Structures are given as C-alpha cells and as structure tokens.
Amino acid sequence: MKLNELPPKTLIKQAHAGVKLITEQYPDAAAILRETVTRFDVLCEVHQQTQKQRDELADDAEYLKMRFKEADLLFGKLMLAMRAAVIESEHGAGPIAGISWIFNTLHGPNEFAPEAEKNAQEYFDRESEIIDAEFSKCMDFFTSRRSKSCNGGGDAK
C-alpha cells in the first residue's frame, strides 16, 4: 500500500509511532516529525469539520430551494385559479360560476378571510399594506446585493 492510499487517521497513528521509535536516537528529527504530524492531524480535523459544514449548507440550500419551489407552485396555482375564474365568468357559465373557482381554491387549504370581515376593499387595503411592506424589504435586499455586485463587492447575485 502506498503512503497516499493510507487513511489520514492510520497515517497519523503510524507517524506518532515513528516519532516514539526515533526520539532517543534522533531527537531533533523526532521533534520536527511530531510537530508535522500534529499539524497534519489538526488540518485533517479542520478538513472534516469543513466537509461537515459544507454538507449541512448543501442540505440547507436544498431545503430552501424546495421551499421556494413550493411557494412558486402555490402562487402559480392561485394565478391559474384566478385566470380560470375570469375565463368561466366571461366565456362560461358566468360570474357566479367564475367565483366558484376562487372559492374552491381557497376552500381547499381553508384560506378564507376571517368571518368578521365585511368590507372587501378595507380588508384588501389593510392586508395589502402588510404584504407590500414585506415585499419592499425583499426588493431592498435584492437591490443592495445587485449594487454590491455591480460595484465589485464579490459574488452577489
């Protein structure tokens, strides 16, 4: 077996054993070998930790990708239902049948507005303000990243 084929832990154990063997006869060489093996051991540990962190980050990235896809698909389905409602209203069984598309879409995940809400425009305006404020934060974030990227600030996307 070649030296580069040995697992790092085996190589370190053998090197430490070698240090013990040569300590009396070659103390300076043993000290250099001991320091080298210790540094190698530390580097192996750092490498393992880095790999673990990389794997965790890759897992988190995959999770976030799937969450984004989930949100995108949900948004797409809601848009599809609204489009179908308009088609039904204009070219099908009329406005009442059209609204059933929206009603049924909201009914599935139980996303109806609270029963206490009686004024559609007021409800829409109030809830829309909250969404718009959060949307604005997202846009500010992306604008800032883009600005950093354009100004040579790294690999922002």
Rank of each mutant, 00 (worst) to 15 (best):
L3E: 04
N4A: 10
K9R: 12
I12K: 01
I12A: 00
A15V: 07
G18D: 01
L21C: 09
T23A: 13
E24N: 15
Y26S: 15
P27E: 02
A29Y: 10
A29V: 15
A30F: 03
A30N: 06
A30P: 05
A31P: 05
I32E: 09
L33G: 02
R34D: 10
R34S: 12
T36V: 10
T36W: 04
T36N: 11
V37P: 00
V37W: 00
T38S: 09
R39N: 15
C44H: 04
C44M: 06
C44Y: 05
V46W: 08
H47K: 08
H47C: 05
T50H: 04
T50G: 09
K52F: 02
K52P: 01
Q53W: 09
L57M: 14
L57F: 15
D59F: 15
D60I: 04
Y63P: 01
K65I: 05
K65R: 09
K65E: 05
M66V: 15
M66E: 15
R67A: 11
E70R: 12
E70I: 10
A71D: 08
L78F: 06
L78G: 08
M79E: 14
L80P: 03
A81C: 03
A81Q: 02
M82C: 15
A85K: 00
I87K: 03
G92R: 01
G94C: 02
P95M: 12
I96W: 11
I96S: 07
W101Q: 06
W101K: 11
W101T: 02
I102V: 14
N104Y: 11
N104C: 05
N104V: 02
H107C: 14
G108I: 15
N110K: 09
A113N: 09
E115Y: 10
A116T: 08
A120W: 07
Q121H: 09
E122M: 13
E122W: 06
E122K: 13
E122N: 13
Y123W: 12
Y123C: 09
Y123F: 13
F124C: 11
F124D: 06
D125E: 04
D125V: 07
E127I: 15
E129S: 02
I130G: 01
A133Q: 03
A133H: 06
K137H: 10
K137V: 13
C138N: 10
C138K: 11
F142N: 02
F142T: 00
T143P: 01
S147N: 14
S147L: 07
S149Q: 14
N151L: 08
G152L: 04
G152N: 04
G153M: 00
G153S: 03
G154T: 02
D155F: 07
A156W: 14
